[in-house]
Design a binder for these strands. Sequence first.
RNA 1: GUGGGCGUAGCUCAGCUGGUAGAGCACUCGGUUGUGGUCCGAGAUGUCGCGGGUUCGAGCCCCGUCGUUCACCCCA
Length: 422
Amino acid sequence: MKYEKLQAPKGVREYLPPESSAFEWVRENLIAPAKASGYRLMELPVFEDTNLFSRGVGESTDVVSKEMYTFEDRGGRSITLRPEGTAGVMRAVIEQNLDRGQLPVKVWYSGQFFRAERPQAGRYRQFYQVGIEAIGLDDPAIDAEVIAIADQGFKNLGLKNYRLEITSLGDSASRSAHRVDLLKFIATLDLDEATEARAAINPLRLFDDKRPEMQEKMAKAPLLLDYLSEDSRRNFEMVQKYLTGMGISFTINPRMVRGLDYYTGTTFEFIHPDLGAQSGIGGGGRYDGLMEILGGQSLSGIGFGLGVDRALLAAIAEKTVPVSEFTSDLFIIPLGDSAMEYALRIANQLRSEKLSVELAFGDRSLKGAMKAADKSGARFAIVLGDSELEQGTVSLKRMSDGEVTSVKITELRTELAERSSR
RNA sequence: GUGGGCGUAGCUCAGCUGGUAGAGCACUCGGUUGUGGUCCGAGAUGUCGCGGGUUCGAGCCCCGUCGUUCACCCCA
């Protein structure tokens, strides 16, 4: 009886050895600056009450209206696989009262997110993000620091070709003033039906249209940046000053539009040109009304999400991924049953002393086992047979040049420690 | 959700105007008794994505389907 083969669901990206080590390298490097800045881990569920996203992210966004994985659980509750990270963090902060202590609350997270889009280069239905949130403080210095943390993550990967774009969406007074004029302007344009509909939901979206004729039409549209209130404008200037002071280069993109409704004030995107159509490797911004919308107190916040999958693609494009393979300290080749019994024992012991040790299993030829030792990248190899067991000594072979030294088995650990460090 | 390209051994691919499959790499074993990376030799592996159709006959043609890839919408 032969069973049918199963496949992974459409649009998921899997990371298997040896590429998985590059993925892990990217993720850890993106996390490191957050840890170094006092952000602490938050491990959250990947599914939440659907209302969290429809209310938090915004009913009008594409993410909510057509890209969510929503289903009913056995208790009849509407559940959604998280399409982004911020809403879940806010929910947990409110629910667990983290905002009752000292502010800001500074947390980071890492994990998979889900959007039911048509997959393409750098876009998957399950994707990985590293993110941070700083909640409860209005200070342009925090905005600048959050951006700097993201930037440092990309620098850790050795990336050079990306650029940082920033803008300010201002406070609600700024936005409503701008909206009036923008709607007036849009009313003068001759738009197709689909675009008209998008404009009705969120007129800012038209700035993001890639079609050249639309860009032309929008060229003279009023820009939100010109409508910033005095406070917002001063805030934005401070953010820029701080960034410049840290040596972080950026460009101001007054036409930048983000896909989530909760953004306010400082907003930013990291863009890498070598990835194809999906060029955003990370982005974020302020979300000053979000917590209140989700039933918490009225606190501001700022955060970012960085795409691990896309950052990896960028690192591959720029050829900055280190080629290091896993290397163990010792590879043991036992010959025969009693040697295997002994090998398992000393391997365990060496591992308990923090050495990494691999064994040759199965009935392989010695030549094949040596080949496996070579492939594993182990620094040293020993053969364990009857004569070695009798004499209590082994020939410690250094794989890089084949040099062999006779070593007592009881002294393997110290020998390895000494020789590996050189 | 819309549109284009692709789908042949683990991987990268070849397969001429339709006659039931190959290469390189990788893998396993061997090249005289227990030592890797080079070299030489031998070997295993495919329901040609799946289903249907045309045909005496299809990996090659047609339809559908699934997957993949690229782009649009949108986004990490």
